[in-house]
Structure formats: structure tokens, C-alpha cells
Design a protein around this nucleic acid. Structure first.
Lengths: 221, 221
DNA sequence: CAGGCGAATGCCACTAAGTGGCATCCTCTC
DNA sequence: GAGAGGATGCCACTTAGTGGCATTCGCCTG
């Protein structure tokens, strides 16, 4: 209405796309709210769709499953990560694992708009108490790791069958999950900045896994 | 029949238990067969239950989901792993990750009876081509890792919140999965021995994840 | 501005996983 | 051999997810 005269090019995506996007956001917001208040299993899709005034059929054209809508903010992060990998300048000689950590942190920075951190907090907590969501999340990570492997292979000619590379990606994801866990269970201050800090701390723990040794049982009280 | 006279103590578990066990095995065998031949989604539980002559209600008293029956041989391995952890003598000064690898290999050795390797091969291949099964498998691993963390905490007073310990378990699982993948996609000879070999190779790749560096794009053909 | 094209949506019927309740049957024990 | 209790079967039900088709809505062209 108040925006563009008829002949100036509109920088925004066409209305159809914006509508789809709005539906998508309305669904995730309503889902996070309802799931958080009454539990994932305590809310039916019929109810969610009713709330957003959308048919169930449309829901499944937007999300592949009930789990996916709950993890949308999380999945957005990893999609951004893949995008970052595509564009990141090569840094030979630098350990791949380091570069990957940079990409994760960069992706986090990109997400930092609007209320993303808060939505991520909600879906992290939901995943923590809902096996079905957690399972979906872990599978999504698996797919993402394979996608990343593909990008690395294509852009930096890293052998995609090299076990070390795949394991580096796996440990990257695992460490990020620990960072998320720390962040989400913190009593307060689950800000985007704090998430970056917690993630860095989790990454820093990686080298220690090789040398960590058991204490003899007698060594403690 | 030919086994025990009436007053000698029976070493076998009571009949009721044996029956349950037989149903369980019949279900997994039939499931692996049907799923392998016609795909996970191409077989309904009604059909599976009909084949084994068991009610669907009984199926769900034996397995928690359709996915679980397909991964039973895999899950058995990790349960054995946990048992091994419980009994394994402490080895202070030895890196925890090493000890954990020993436990996995020991568990594999224990499983080596009957046709286990073959069943594991089938369910690994199924997981590879069925997202629902893969997701279930990854979640199961997550639960197993937490259980292992608990044992390590209780037996060796390792701090269960130590990120390094958790990450060591995560990388252990990830590496095992790579070993499994190598083993299951090998053209032939998917034997228990070969699995041990492939698993060891995957474990050996772990230290390399820290130092692996990218090759400059210009460095290749 | 008319009108049509194609994408997105809504509606309806349907399949199949998973659950609760209750009657029945089987195994163990005394 | 009789009773107690666990395991099973059967039935009805909920709900996630899908396919098909009519309808609507944004977009583009004449």
C-alpha cells in the first residue's frame, strides 16, 4: 500500500512467496507456543492448523512432518551453515575442523535477526524432552553432514570418502549440540551472544577427547 | 523331551520367557526378510504380524515401534556394550577413548554367535535406505551414550558433565557407524571378523580429524 | 481491464501406526 | 488341581500422513 508506485521495481519477493513465508512463520510460532505449553504429544495437527487457519493439507505442503515444524529454527541455522560453506574462501594449511567451526559461528551470526535466538531456545528445549523431535533432529544433522561433505568435496577437492573428514563433521555437530545444551539449560540469559560463547567453549573441548584418561576408582572420596 | 528328568534343576529360563524370546526372534527375522525384499514402507505391521501369527497388540508389547524391530540386532550390540562397560576392569592412565573402543570390540566378539552378523548386515542396509529407521537408530545411540555416561560416572567417577567425555562417546559412535558403513557396502564377505577389522580402521581415523587440512583448489587436476 | 494460466489451497476419503480396555488363555506355584 | 497373575487376542479409537480433485488466488498477457 504505502510502498511502491506501479512502475518502480519491487525489491521484495512476489506476494505469493511472501504469503507462503508468512504461513510458514505463523505455523512455527503457533507450534512452538502450543508444544511448549502442552507438550508435543498434547497438541494435534488439527488443532495447530485450526489455530493458524490453514488446512492440514497445506501444513504438509509446508513441512514434511509434525517434528519438522518444531525444529524449523534449528534447521534454518544448518541451512545457513551450508550456504556459508559454499561461499567461504579457501584457507589451505588451516585444519578443516577449524574452518568448519568458523562456518558454524558465522552462520549463527547471520541468524541473529529478529527473535531467532528465542525460537531456537524453545525448540532446543522441546527436543530435549521429546524423543520424536530429537530423533528427527539427529537425522536432519546426518543429512546436513552429508550435504556438507558434498560441498567440501566439490569446492576443495577433499575426498568425500575420507573417514577423517566425515568424522570431523560428526564431531563438529556433536560439539555444537553440547554447546546448545549448555546454553539452553542455563538459568537465564539465553542470548545469541551467549550461544556463541557456549558453542566456542564446546568446540574448545574437542582436542581433549583423545587424551582424557580415567581416574582410578580409589582416587576419589 | 530328551533333556531333563523332573527333579533336576533346569538351567534354561522358564518356558514363559523362552516363548517370549521365540516370538521376538520370529518377529525380527520375518521383519528383516519382508523389509529387505519389499522395503520398510511396503510392509504393514498387520502383514508382519499375520506372518508370525501374532496380534498387533503383542507386537507392541515386544517392540516400541515398527522401526525398533528392524534395528533389534543393532540395539543388541549396544546393550552388550553397556554390559561390558559395567564389568570392564579399570585401567587408569589409559585414555578413556581407547578403553571405550576395547569395549565396543569386546561386545562385537560376544555377539558373534549364530547368524548375528548376517542380521546386522540386513538392518544396516535397511537403515541406509530408510530415513525413519536411520532416525530411530541415531536416537537410540543418543540414549545409549547417555547410559554409558552414567556407567562411567558411577564406576570410574568420571564427571558426567565433562564435555570431553561426552564427545569421546559421540565420536566413538560416529566412528563405529563409519566402520559399519564400510563393512555393509563391501561387495562380499560381510563376516564378523571383517566387521572387527573395519571398525578398527574407523577408530584409527579418529586422531586425524584434528589435523586434517584442506588442499588448495589449485592443487588438483 | 478482461481473461486465462498455473500455483497454492481446501476439502474429502483413506491408509496405517500406535494405544487403551477387557476378556481369555497359559504358565507357574502351592 | 486349583488359584493367582502374567501374556495374549480382539475391538474400538485416535491421529499422522497421503492422494485426488475442485476451487481460489496471484500473475501475466493481450
Amino acid at each position: 500500500m504505502a510502498t511502491a508506485s506501479s512502475h518502480s521495481p519491487d525489491p521484495r519477493p512476489p506476494l505469493r512467496e511472501r504469503k507462503k513465508q508468512r504461513t510458514r512463520e505463523a505455523l512455527t510460532d503457533a507450534a512452538l507456543d502450543l508444544f511448549t505449553r502442552r507438550g508435543f504429544d498434547g497438541v494435534t495437527l488439527d488443532e495447530l492448523c485450526d489455530r493458524v487457519e490453514v488446512s492440514k493439507r497445506t501444513f504438509f505442503r509446508t513441512f514434511a512432518s509434525k517434528e519438522e515444524v518444531a525444529m524449523a529454527p534449528y534447521e534454518d541455522l544448518w541451512r545457513t551453515f551450508i550456504d556459508d560453506l559454499e561461499l567461504r574462501p579457501a584457507s589451505p594449511d588451516r585444519p578443516v575442523l577449524q574452518a568448519l567451526q568458523d562456518s558454524v559461528l558465522a552462520a549463527m551470526q547471520t541468524m541473529d535477526a529478529g527473535d531467532w535466538a528465542h525460537r531456537l531456545l524453545l525448540c532446543t528445549q522441546l527436543a530435549g524432552k521429546t524423543p520424536a523431535i530429537e530423533a528427527h533432529c539427529l537425522y536432519f544433522c546426518d543429512v546436513t553432514v552429508r550435504a556438507a561433505l558434498d560441498v567440501l568435496h566439490r569446492r576443495f577437492s577433499l575426498a568425500s570418502h575420507d573417514l577423517r573428514l566425515r568424522l570431523a563433521l560428526d564431531i563438529l555437530v556433536a560439539a555444537f549440540h553440547r554447546g546448545l545444551e549448555t546454553w539452553a539449560t542455563r538459568p537465564q540469559a539465553a542470548t545469541a551472544d551467549q550461544l556463541a560463547t557456549d558453542t566456542r567453549a564446546a568446540f574448545a573441548a574437542i582436542p581433549g577427547i583423545l587424551t582424557l584418561a580415567a581416574v582410578a576408582p580409589a582416587d576419589h572420596a
